[in-house]
C-alpha cells in the first residue's frame, strides 16, 4: 500500500461518508415531518414514505462513487501501486460527490418535509411535492456525473 492508495481510499471514504451523513440528516428531517402527518392520517403513509426516501439517494450516489474508486484502484484484486499524484487525482475526483452529496441531501430533506406538509393538506398534490424535492437532487446528480468521469477518465498508471 502506497500513500497514493491511502489518498484514493480517503477520497472514497469521504464521498461515501459525507453523502451518507447528508442523506441521514435529510431523511431524518423528512421523517420528523412525516411522522406528524401519519399520526393524523395513517392512510397517507405510502405517499409520505416516498417523499421521505427522496433525500436517501445521495447516500447511494456516494456509495457508487466510492465503489468506482475501489474498482479504479483495483482494490478487490492486486491493488495498483499508485503514486502520490495519482492518489490525489482519485481524491479530487471524489470531492464533488462528497460536498454536493452532503449539502444537497440536507436541503432536499427540507424540501421533502415541505412536500410532506403539502401532502397533509392536499393529498392529490403529493406528486408535485416529489418534483419540488427532486429539483434539489439535480445537483447531486451533476456532482455524481463529474465524480464518475473524473475517476474514470485519468490513466492512473501514467501519473508519476
Amino acid at each position: 500500500m502506497t500513500t497514493g492508495v491511502f489518498l484514493a481510499l480517503l477520497g472514497a471514504a469521504l464521498a461515501a461518508g459525507f453523502s451518507c451523513a447528508g442523506s441521514a440528516i435529510g431523511v431524518g428531517i423528512a421523517g420528523q415531518a412525516g411522522a406528524g402527518v401519519v399520526a393524523e392520517d395513517p392512510d397517507k403513509f405510502s405517499k409520505v414514505l416516498i417523499l421521505q426516501l427522496l433525500p436517501g439517494t445521495q447516500g447511494i450516489y456516494g456509495l457508487v462513487v466510492a465503489f468506482m474508486a475501489f474498482v479504479k484502484i483495483q482494490l478487490f484484486g492486486d491493488v495498483l501501486a499508485l503514486s502520490d499524484a495519482a492518489g490525489w487525482v482519485v481524491f479530487a475526483g471524489c470531492m464533488p460527490m462528497a460536498i454536493a452529496g452532503l449539502i444537497s441531501a440536507i436541503f432536499q430533506g427540507k424540501a421533502a418535509a415541505a412536500g410532506i406538509a403539502m401532502t397533509a393538506k392536499r393529498p392529490e398534490a403529493s406528486g408535485k411535492g416529489i418534483i419540488f424535492a427532486a429539483m434539489v437532487e439535480t445537483y447531486a446528480l451533476l456532482a455524481l456525473v463529474i465524480s464518475i468521469l473524473a475517476i474514470f477518465i485519468p490513466d492512473l498508471t501514467a501519473i508519476a
Binding site: 447511494i60 450516489y61 457508487v64 465503489f67 478487490f76 439535480t138 451533476l142 455524481l144 456525473v145
Partner: peptide, 26 residues
C-alpha cells in the same frame, strides 16, 4: 446538460448492482 442525469442514473443502477454482486462474491 441536464440530460446527463440519464447517464448518472443509468450508471448508478449498474454500479449498485455491481456492489451487490461483489459483496456476494466476497
Amino acid at each position: 446538460l441536464s440530460y446527463c442525469r440519464i447517464f448518472g442514473l443509468g450508471l448508478a443502477t449498474g454500479a449498485i448492482a455491481m456492489v451487490v454482486n461483489t459483496i456476494a462474491e466476497i
